[in-house]
Design a protein around this nucleic acid. Structure first.
Lengths: 330, 330
DNA sequence: GTGAAAGCGCTAACAT
DNA sequence: ATGTTAGCGCTTTCAC
């Protein structure tokens, strides 16, 4: 591959002039400029960013570490980052850890070796231990917050999203709605649960009237959780509304409802959380709390760039509002 | 950030020795080895891959160019590549072109500037023009084939997948099934259409008995295509089966069927193509032809590495079989 | 066994 | 307005 040296020789000038010409930095006589451009073109010159990075420090590369590349919730955020970062000249180093803490650690290390200018981390239960590893490199943590950390973090407002969901259910249903919970290890589960509890209490129900089954954030979990809720129905406490801690478990619940001979939303209404792609496609389509994924991506990038540029962050913890999307299930 | 120079100073040795020690290349006295390792650890040394790449040529980085990061079909393939590439020490530079030919060209260029060791391209209608751009860098093209090109390409067998789908429909239905076609610009549309036509003919139907509506590979397209099919039903030629060129349009068709008062699969059976994530979640769940995404990813990586290592490829055009996934819709 | 030095492609003083 | 040169962090001969 051609180098500026080759261009310099061909154009009969020095390498510095070539560098100046190609980067439009410093003065170059129009005649020589043209000569250089022609030579570069003829040689099919492609600048070597690694070499450039060695001297001026920035690789113009951002590391993105995700626990699952095949999760539309995550990828919509990454796409948001991509779309905002690309026009700025940044490229994305995207790696999937499959939720494996050991991989996470190694991948992070690799990103440092590659000298990514900054890193965006989709938090997993193992993330907190990782933070010290990359001290010194700008970092933003996404999606599931790490409690009591000073690392810049961004997430949707899980608590208020849950309250909105449950309040809608409360308005549409005659009985207190049930809850399909998320895994307790995942930090976003807690505020969503709390939102459910508080909404119930706020509506005048005692905590004894709350009904909670594990949904585990999965399709299968939602299915089984819903089944157990369904078998526990009594004439004294009927069930006509369910809030699922995320869309995947809501979809599982939808199936369980159908298989048990009930109809959603006529018999039982369902609200989910996240607004994954499939939420639009199922029958009935799913009413849910939408995570503002594009906004999360943009905010993450903004906060990362601020750090890279050495600015002080005023908010180290950004919470974005979720949006109620009304569809057929409630 | 610490460099080998710092380590050398601290351990009281030369940089060459440090390099040899850290890379376990060449002999180093156990005592000095330990000293060096300790020094490196104390300094929190992280090797600089860019610098290494400058001398030995390989960046251990692979470029992946996708038209849409939020497409589970694509991302399952990328994840397959990730999982296979990571243990080999490769990192993925993933960029989304949003199907914009101009972006595609620029991103490709950037990947060259970053000196990716190889590039995997998810083909779009604009791809063929791009190929010459990266001549000299190992390349594999995925998903939608470019006809008459000598570039290594991998895809599912669209034609036979379509035939399988239609043959299943033919077996389960009483009347010749209809077809929701893909956009003619996308090369995978043609063989899927041909598979439909040939299956019909093979079953003894004349081409006059084929019914085709545009599905356009989208949810909305499938919905409208299905509606027009539904309004065209006559007593002389009833409709009880539909093959959609992809799952997204099949999901749209499902909705149109429901809204028109028909029941799937009782009245009308539906088969899709791809096996996207939502196919499992909808009601009825979608019978479809599954693209072997993991296998596509692995094969792509294998062919790319072969080129990187300078081997000759025996098959420049790999076609993988699709797998019929039987669910509720047929 | 280990160190000195050259060089990968580029940018940024410093000269001229 | 342009050329010369010193690195950036690392690996790799080539000596000792």
């Amino acid at each position: 591959m051609a180098t500026i040296k080759d261009i310099a020789r061909r154009a009969g000038v020095g390498v510095a002039t070539v560098s100046r010409a190609l980067n439009r930095t410093g003065y170059v006589k129009p005649t020589t400029l043209k000569k250089i451009l022609v030579a570069a073109d003829e040689l099919g010159y492609v600048p070597n960013r690694q070499a450039r990075a060695m001297v001026n420090g920035a690789t113009m590369t951002l590391g993105i570490l995700i626990p699952d590349m095949d999760n539309s919730l995550f990828m919509r955020i990454v796409r948001g980052i991509n779309d905002a970062a690309y026009p700025l000249g940044y490229s994305l180093l995207v790696m999937d850890s499959r939720g494996n803490p050991e991989w996470e650690r190694q991948i992070l290390r690799t990103m440092l070796e590659l000298r990514a200018d900054g890193v965006i981390l989709f938090a997993t239960p193992g993330t907190p231990d990782l933070i010290p590893t990359i001290e010194g490199t700008p970092l933003v943590v996404l999606d599931r917050l790490i409690p009591g950390s000073s690392v810049p973090q961004i997430s949707v407002d899980h608590y208020w999203g849950a309250r909105q969901a449950v309040e809608l259910l409360l308005k549409e249903c005659r009985y207190p709605p049930a809850f399909l919970s998320g895994p307790s290890m995942v930090t976003s589960s807690t505020p969503r649960l709390q939102g459910y509890l508080d909404a119930l209490e706020h509506a005048g129900f005692s905590s004894r009237e709350s009904r909670i089954a594990p949904g585990n954030f999965t399709y299968e979990g939602g299915y089984h959780g819903m089944r157990s809720l369904l078998t526990a129905i009594s004439t004294s406490l009927p069930l006509d509304g369910v809030f699922a801690a995320n869309d995947l478990s809501a979809l599982g619940a939808l199936r369980a409802i159908r298989e048990s001979g009930y109809v959603c939303p006529d018999d039982i209404r369902v609200v989910g959380f996240d607004d994954i792609e499939a939420a639009r496609y199922v029958n009935p389509s799913l009413t849910t709390i939408r995570q503002p994924m594009d906004q999360i991506g943009q905010t993450a990038l903004r906060m990362l760039l601020a750090q890279i540029r050495g600015h002080e962050l005023k908010d180290r913890l950004v919470t974005l509002p979720g949006q109620l999307i009304r569809r057929e299930s409630c």
